[in-house]
Design a protein around this nucleic acid. Structure first.
Lengths: 115, 115
DNA sequence: TAGCTTTGCTATAAAATATGTAGCGTAATG
DNA sequence: CATTACGCTACATATTTTATAGCAAAGCTA
């Protein structure tokens, strides 16, 4: 699996615009979920496996490697942890949580009238 | 493919927490790229195909259906367009663009010293 | 120190998802 | 009519993810 690094061609962008590389990275299964979860504190491999109910160890390991290579997480004595960059990214992701709960959920209620 | 709707079980969350449903939806290939791109204006199926250099029509069509079912895009006379909800979501995504350019890119430069 | 448990992870096969290519039906244009 | 562009479907192939088993290393515990 190609590691999406800004400035290098990635899935969906030959120019390797940073945002495209980031969307590629975060678009892989479980990537955002891992970042989201680690914000609540460091966790072990098995702990993450439990959190991501249906992730396979193969995929978890692949994702962890990618996120490490992309400077978002690192390993410490306490387990996998968000780096400073990872925390910054989480903080950008966070507003999506309340938006999803309050606004997005609402949108499904408006559509009873649809076909 | 299961459409991730808040409140219903989705990939990675039996409880269907809205944020998990959203991460599932946006985590699918090209989903974020489509939202990102449509913010610059309505576009046609073929226009989106060109933008997403390597997407197949099959996947594009699947993704468009999902995004429509999830109230983020709709079809108008001008082509596919972000809904008001889609625009709100884009605005949450937008800060990631400059973060990727300025901060994330920087993180790769710091790591020359690594193994 | 021998056994048991936990942890991080690999191997492998099967299932799910995405790509690549061809091309159909419709509508507009000439 | 013929040509073109559009939205999309079909289908075979390739890639990615899951599911399951299990191994090697480290930490108890007796």
């Amino acid at each position: 699996m190609i590691i999406p690094i800004p400035g290098q061609p990635v899935r969906g962008s030959k120019s390797g615009q940073p945002i495209m590389a980031l969307l590629d990275l975060l678009g892989r299964s479980w990537a955002m979920g891992i970042v989201w979860h680690l914000y609540s504190g460091p966790n072990t491999f098995r702990g993450l496996q439990d959190y991501c109910e249906s992730i396979s160890p193969t995929t978890l390991n692949t994702r962890l490697k990618e996120l490490r290579d992309c400077n978002l997480i690192e390993r410490t004595l306490e387990g996998y942890t968000l780096t400073a960059y990872g925390k910054e990214l989480y903080e950008l992701l966070e507003p999506m949580g309340s938006w999803a709960r309050h606004r997005w959920t609402q949108s499904f209620k408006e559509n009873n009238n649809k076909s």
